[in-house]
Nucleic acid binder design. Structure first.
Length: 403
DNA sequence: GTCAATTCACATGAAAGAGACCACGGTCTAGTG
DNA sequence: CTAGACCGTGGTCTCTTTCATGTGAATTGACGA
């Protein structure tokens, strides 16, 4: 049975001119062939890594910079060129890239080492083995043949925050145990003061070299957007000023190129869905709102049940009073909700942490405030727009099967 | 009026427990020749 | 005899609880002018 309406919709979709030529170019995991406005940094990285081609261990390198400032891109770009040369000259240089933030992949000591070992071709189960054994397996594959390994640890600050800096110490020291292989480390961090909290011995051996990536300014962002847009969109579908506007938006947010590209992509998608032949300025505003809305709702849906109960308690408190509320009030309301839902309530200690997490996620704004004789508490406000609060509550109620 | 001590209501840290998940090795069982 | 099912042990990892300690300014109360 064919649905004529749907068929019609699909057919007009096909018949319509597609705005995108290659949408991939705007997605975050896309690696362009040219890295715009990062010549200086890629040169530096290249100089530091070049000794690898003579099988000398390059200095360990530490790369800092805010999100979307091109760190990962530049490092990977340089490494790719390096391994191309190495492959052509038959030099045994191997590169492994691990993102330490990826949950369930590389966010603990065990998983990080296991992940690296897997990249080197060693099968390692997701759990069950003692960490020591994983280390042994790891050093064994590593030392199996003569080679030079360049190990990139992205978002290394996340890893250290979670598990401490011993892993880094072990990794910087691993060369002493290896007979045939040498390992060079590249750490990438969003957190500029991260290294200050490291143990001195780790810090000195990890950051033998340092490169700092400054945020892009609006003009640079424009260039980046233009170069990507040229690949991603078809000729002439961008209204003049669109690129500039995207760049301006992103420049306001500490020059995050990723944001700028996302904005442009979503604006394009909106235009396409509305059947517009051109990406107009107005779509950028809509795109910004849409991105924000989806970010918030995605976060809410992804939260564990207990977090959702806490959040719902928080939101419902805001119906009554518009000003800030305290941890204690939320906890009381939360306990009521739990009994109503048949959940076992968590302790206040835990709720305190959950509120801190929600703060990190940008759903709420929490400020620790001392009110003298009246104690000390988080002063909590909602960080999302009013019309979204209503929708958020509905989502939560559905998730919790409330009412 | 000034100043230090007190006090509140939590925040923040550390450690340890519960329960889910998993690998490994040993034992049991059923199927095969 | 052997492959596979099943069990117990020991490991990781996440989420929590328990216990302990920290915090910062409004309030209090002693003191002196």
């Amino acid at each position: 049975m064919t649905d004529k309406k749907l068929v019609g919709l699909f057919e007009t979709f096909l018949a319509k001119d597609n705005l995108f030529a290659e949408k991939r170019a705007l997605q975050t995991n896309y690696t362009p062939s040219v890295v715009v406005h990062r010549e200086e940094q890629t040169q530096q990285i290249a100089k530091i890594l070049a000794p690898a081609l003579r099988m000398d261990k390059p200095s360990n390198l530490f790369v800092y910079g805010k999100t979307g400032s091109g760190k990962t891109l530049s490092v990977l770009h340089t490494l790719k060129n390096l391994s191309d040369v190495a492959a052509r000259q038959k030099i045994a240089v191997k590169t492994v890239y691990v993102n330490c933030k990826l949950k369930k992949v590389a966010d603990t000591e065990y998983r990080l080492i296991a992940q690296i070992a897997r990249d080197l071709g060693q099968e390692i189960p997701a759990t069950g083995l003692p960490t020591q054994e994983v280390y042994q397996l790891f050093t064994r594959v590593l030392d199996a043949k003569e080679q030079l390994l360049i190990l990139v640890l992205d978002e290394i600050d996340q890893l250290v925050k979670k598990t401490g800096d011993e892993i880094l110490y072990t990794l910087t020291r691993v060369n002493a145990e290896l007979k045939r292989t040498q390992v060079a480390l590249i750490g990438i961090s969003n957190d500029l003061i991260f290294a200050d909290n490291l143990e001195p011995r780790v810090k000195s051996s990890l950051s033998e070299e340092e490169i700092i990536f400054p945020p892009y300014n609006a003009l640079q962002l424009q260039d980046i957007l233009r170069s990507r847009a040229k690949v991603a969109f078809r000729e002439g579908v961008l209204e003049t000023g669109v690129v500039e506007k995207c760049a301006a938006f992103a420049a306001r947010e500490h020059g995050d190129a990723r944001r700028a590209l996302e904005l442009l992509r979503v604006a394009g998608e909106l235009a396409e869905r509305n059947g517009a032949g051109v990406v107009k300025m107005q779509y950028i505003d809509e795109a910004e709102e849409k991105i924000e809305r989806e970010r918030v709702f995605d976060i809410i849906i992804a939260q564990p049940k207990q977090h959702q109960v806490a959040l719902h308690a928080l939101l419902s408190l805001f119906d009554r009073q518009k000003d800030a509320i305290s941890t204690g009030e939320i906890y009381d309301r939360y306990k009521q909700h739990c009994t109503r839902l048949g959940f076992r309530p968590l302790t206040q200690r835990r709720i305190s942490d959950i509120l801190a997490e929600l703060d990190m996620l940008g759903i709420i704004n929490a400020k620790v405030l001392s009110k003298g004789r009246y104690g000390r508490t988080r002063e909590i406000r909602i960080a999302i727009a009013d019309q979204m609060v209503v929708r958020a509550k509905e989502i939560l109620e559905k998730e919790l099967e409330l009412k």
